[in-house]
Design a protein around this nucleic acid. Structure first.
Length: 452
RNA sequence: GGCCCGUUCGUCUAGGGGUUAGGACAGGAGAUUUUCAUUCUUCAAACACGGGUUCGAUUCCCGUACGGGCUACCA
């Protein structure tokens, strides 16, 4: 049991906008309680049912016993051929078993698998799968602390809660036959859920499935929300904190191993629900592609209305550059919207909120030739006479000013750009002037001119 | 090692017995933008290999290779 994990899952589902109809943290429905720890008694009851029916047995083997058994054979597994060597209710006399139970000795309950029997089941993604019980082992169903293993818990919970589909990662495929047998032995086979084993998300580099360590090693999050391991204190970065939009994350994730069969790639959550079908799930694992993830996020940011983007970025901006007027922030954000890959990239555009103090040195050297031809005082009064809201008028006036003072338009624009932005990049000059206002613009121009 | 699952451009994938094998990301070139970003046009880029089956296989079958998963009193 990891402290904080339950709340973390709840918070994650809320962030991505997936709200379960019922469940821990989302209100009670017909199948309460939802925590395994609160259902403990029921698992024991089902384990005992299996015991009575002869599909399970007590095993008293200690850790040391198991070590010894493992040492006896290179590929040891506790199964039909080896359980005769274990200390369990199949090898011990009935008296001894009751004695051990009365003495409160530690025990587990294991499933009793037949020695050689094909278990067949149908996977909605992979089709028919057959595994022989000779390849499986007598898995522990109930641990010595009385808690069920996943195998028992998942089967019992899904049956009791009338689950229709078990959709989980491919790493569960090998234990699916065990679960099928459990449904059978418990007498629930006719209401067994359908199985679908999803392809696994793989590391972008190297081999194997994506793990939490890979993300921060390669510069992208694998956790939806930032997560601090309560035991180790290790922090794993989260999509939310990195400035991803939840809709983009969902869209990106959905396309890892699934496609709609059309060429559409941008899907809202609702459209995704509408378009989704199990038939279009790919079988092979998909490598996580950081570049594509960035592309999805940038697309979603571009589609955001300016007001919404301003709202999402507001807190960060005021923390970094001071509190901003809401309408101003909305206008500012509209100028650089298509430059954001992540919401946090707003931090790169401090010049929208604070006067530029530092100028990029190579940009500065490219504009120094304007020093002789440019008259700051003349420009200042010229700009004062402009309509501070008319972008087009300002643009034509700027060109006129340049012509009248025999300055190359390009040179002057570059100079103004460096004055306002600090370097030779960014939104159109007239847009910037209108955003910043005439006074602020003049202030920045004078300041930059003095540094030439 | 054993068992299970898989294999189409660098990556995510569409397709499916006869196709110029399609799209997206990333990459190249160009246009627009006085800059950068955006946008648009365009280029390059793939059916793992070997056998069958077939008039014809990227598509079906079998092997091989490679990749992935599992092999805990974890999920």
């Amino acid at each position: 049991l990891v402290p904080g994990a339950e709340q973390y899952v709840i918070d994650t589902l809320k962030w991505v906008g997936i709200e379960p109809n019922e469940g821990a943290g989302f209100g009670d429905g017909n199948f309460t309680p939802y925590r395994q720890s609160d259902r403990k008694d029921s698992y024991r009851q089902y384990a005992e049912q299996l015991l009575k029916a002869g599909f399970a047995y007590y095993a008293f083997d200690t850790e040391a016993d198991l070590e010894q058994l493992k040492a006896s054979h290179p590929n040891f597994k506790y199964d039909a051929t080896t359980r005769v060597n274990g200390k369990n209710s199949l090898t011990l006399s009935e008296n001894e078993v009751t004695l051990r139970l009365e003495n409160n000795e530690d025990y587990v309950i294991r499933i009793k698998l037949p020695a050689n029997e094909d278990v067949k089941f149908y996977d909605e993604i992979r089709g028919h799968v057959t595994v022989n019980t000779s390849q499986m082992d007598d898995k522990v169903l109930l641990k010595s602390d009385g808690m069920p293993t996943y195998h028992l818990a998942n089967v019992c919970d899904d049956y009791v809660m009338q689950i229709s589909h078990v959709i989980r990662g491919e790493e569960w495929l090998p234990s699916a036959p065990l679960h099928v047998l459990l449904y059978r032995y418990l007498g629930w086979e006719s209401s067994m859920p359908k199985f679908a084993h999803l392809p696994i998300v793989l590391k972008p580099d190297g081999n194997g499935k994506l793990s939490k360590r890979d993300g921060d090693r390669l510069g992208f999050p694998v956790f939806p929300l930032e997560w601090t391991d309560p035991k180790t204190g290790e922090i794993s970065s989260g999509y939310k904190q990195k400035g991803y939009l939840p809709e983009a994350v969902i869209n990106m994730l959905a396309f890892l191993g699934w496609n709609p069969g059309t060429e559409q790639e941008i899907f809202s959550k609702e459209a995704l629900i509408e378009a989704f079908s199990i038939e279009h799930i790919h079988k092979a694992g998909a490598k996580f592609d950081f570049e594509k993830a960035k592309w999805f996020n940038a697309e979603y940011i571009k589609k955001l209305p300016n007001e919404e983007l301003a709202f999402l970025v507001k807190e960060n901006v005021s923390a970094k550059f001071g509190k901003q007027d809401e309408t101003y922030l909305t206008r500012a954000v509209s100028l650089i919207k298509e430059r954001l890959v992540f919401l946090n990239d707003i931090e790169l555009f401090g010049y929208l909120f604070q006067a530029t103090e530092k100028y990029d040195s190579t940009s500065l050297s490219k504009i120094s030739n304007i020093k002789e031809s440019f008259n700051v005082d003349a420009f200042e009064s010229f700009l004062q006479g402009q309509n501070s809201a008319d972008i087009i008028a300002i643009e034509t006036s700027l060109k006129e000013f340049a012509a009248n003072n025999s300055i190359k338009v390009g040179d002057m624009m570059k100079f103004i750009r460096v004055s306002l932005v600090g370097e030779l990049s960014g939104p159109a000059i007239p847009d910037l002037i209108v955003l910043l206002g005439i006074n602020e613009t003049n202030k920045r121009i004078r300041n930059c001119f003095n540094q030439l």
